[in-house]
Nucleic acid binder design. Structure first.
Lengths: 113, 113
DNA sequence: ACACGAATTGAAGACTTCTGCAATTCGGCA
DNA sequence: TGCCGAATTGCAGAAGTCTTCAATTCGTGT
């Protein structure tokens, strides 16, 4: 297995390694959404959100298109949901006897899908 | 869902966002291995590998223990394998009509499990 | 053509991560 | 006890990421 392939994999995971970007992906699991909506739910500067969306676009995990006066974003593949779900499971396993984040993870896991 | 939980999720993914760390996790999927072995397979300075192992330990995705004269590392939960598999699938989907990395991904996917 | 809101881009400073070197710790064994 | 290899730690410079500001693009509607 070549070094470039490992770098591609690493880049893929690094793309998810930011709270705003995780949040965007979770919101997009429910279907395409305009930037407008993401902005109203995420509490971040518009320019910052745009930067994070650009990171997600560059790696190819989301795509964007225009619909009327709004720009829409969508997951490029539903496989992203599996990745997020696997991340949740590991977080649960890892936190299971550590700090108070676990209770919260459990309490919200259904709503956060 | 609280901000700290998003940060924990992001941290989890960021932990995987490095070629050496990805490589270590893939090697550990086959079972516990001593640092010695990892070093012989990864081509990185010993101190650098130690730093990356420390990152993985801090997040809790791997654990370490001593066995005779060697330090062993192992996955803390088999769920990590799911995460890597999901990453591979997304990479395949994302690269499917881009550059030459796709062919390589396919050619090696069985051996790289 | 013009003005407006929506979204993106560019750039700078603060901050974090990465890498390699030298020094250190730690256990096992003569 | 003293030595040896295995692994880790501390550190400093280089490289990369994050955030915010101001400026810009782009389409829509008048």
């Amino acid at each position: 297995m070549s070094v470039p392939l490992y770098q591609a994999k690493a880049e893929m995971f690094r793309t998810l390694g930011h709270p705003v970007r995780i949040r965007v992906l979770e919101l997009l699991q429910a279907g395409p959404r305009p930037v407008r909506d993401l902005l109203s739910e995420i509490d971040v500067e518009p320019s910052n959100l745009s930067q994070q969306l650009a990171v997600l676009r560059r790696t190819g995990v989301v795509v964007s298109f225009r619909d009327g006066g709004l720009v829409m974003y969508a997951l490029s593949t539903p496989d992203v949901a599996d990745l997020l779900a696997a991340g949740r499971r590991i977080l649960g396993a890892v936190l299971s006897d550590r700090d108070g984040l676990l209770a919260e993870l459990k309490a919200h896991s259904a709503a956060d899908q």
